[in-house]
Amino acid sequence: MKDLLATSVKYEQGRLWVLDQHALPHQENWLPCDSVDAMVAMIKALQIRGAPLIGVGASLLLAHLAEQGADREQLEQGALTLRAARPTAVNLMHCMDRMLTSLKQNDRVALVRTAEAIFEEDIKLCNRIAENGAALFGSGQRLLTHCNTGRLATAGAGTALGVIYKLAEQGKAPHVWVDETRPLLQGGRLTTWELAKYGISHTLQCDNMAGILLRDGKVDAVLVGADRIARNGDFANKVGTYSLAVLAHFHKVPFYVVAPYTTVDVDCADGTQIPIEQRDGAEVQGVSGSFGSVEWAPADTEVFNPAFDVTPAALVTGWILDTGIYSQDEIRNGALLALEAA
C-alpha cells in the first residue's frame, strides 16, 4: 500500500500510525496499530475518533493486515469485528461493507486499492462539503460548533470545521465559538488545538453557556457534524447537539448539519432507529486525559452517559453535504433517499 498521510492517521513505510487524540492537546503521540484488537481498543478509547476517520483507519488496517499475509477468513472476521466497534457511526459500517465486497474477489490487491480509495475519497468529500458550505456565509461570521469536526475527525479538512477552514482560506475571517463538549471535552481539547494550529479566531465556552450567546445575538449560525443521518433528516451527533438545536431554534439562529453522503443511512427511516452507544459512567463521574485523572462524584453514583443524541429534522435549517445543500422541503421529498440511487 502506498504512503497515505493525514493529520491524525497515516500509513507510512509499511506501518499504520494513529495520532492519540486522548493525549491532545498537551501531547502529540503517534501510536502504531497492527491488529484488529488494537484498532477496536483505540476506537473505544477515542484515541481515533470521528465517524469518517474511524472508517478510514479501519480500512487501512485491513489492507495492512492483508499485505502482512492474513487469510480471507481472518480478514472477514476482522471487518465484522471492526464494523461493530462504534454502533452509531454508519461511516464505519459503509467502509467495512466496501472492504468485505473487495474480499469476495479473493484478491489482496483489490482490498488494498479499496482502502486507498476510501482514504482519498474522504479528502475529496471534505473539499466538496467545504465549498458548498462556505457559499452560504459572508465575511466575519460568528459560528458556533460542537465536539470536533475537523482534520482530527476525517482524512481531509473536516466537515463543519472544514467549512470554517474554507471561509478562512477565502479571507472571510470567521470567528468560532467552541463548545467545550462534555463529558470528554472534544471541543475544549481538540477543536481549540486545531483552530489555534491554523490561526483561526476562536473562543471556548462551556456547553451550558451557548444559550447566553444565542440569546444575546452573538452567533450567526450553528454548524455541527453527524455520525448518522436517517433518510428523513433526523441525525445522531455527539451528545449535547440536540440541546443546542433546541436553543438555536428558539432564538431563530440557523442550524446546519454538515457531513459527507457516507453518513446518510437510507435504511434508517428516522432517528428512533439509530442505535445510541452508552459509555462508561466514569466519564461523567470525573475526567481523565494527558493531564491525569480527577474524580468528583462518588464511585457508586448511577450515571446516564449516552455518547450521542438525536436531533429531529424539524430543528435543522439545512443539510450541508458534499452532494449539495438540502432544505427541509427537499429532505421531506426524498433528497437523501435519492443519494443511494445516484
Rank of each mutant, 00 (worst) to 15 (best):
T203Q: 13
T311V: 03
E73F: 06
W296P: 00
R72Y: 13
M1Y: 05
F250H: 15
D227Q: 07
H26D: 13
V90T: 12
V264H: 00
D322S: 06
L75K: 07
L337D: 11
Y242S: 11
T159H: 04
G292T: 03
D107Q: 12
C147F: 01
G292W: 01
N91W: 02
G57N: 08
A130K: 00
R189E: 00
Q105I: 00
A70Y: 13
P32T: 14
W177M: 07
T154S: 12
L152M: 12
N106G: 14
Q13F: 04
G133P: 04
F250C: 07
D34H: 14
M93G: 03
A134Y: 04
H94V: 02
P32D: 13
K10P: 09
F304N: 12
S8C: 01
V176Y: 00
A89Y: 02
N237A: 10
L339G: 00
I200Q: 05
V239H: 02
V266G: 00
D97I: 00
K252E: 13
L321N: 02
L75I: 10
A269G: 03
M39V: 11
Q77M: 13
Q47K: 15
L103E: 04
H251F: 14
L143P: 01
L315V: 08
T101L: 14
R49C: 01
G217A: 10
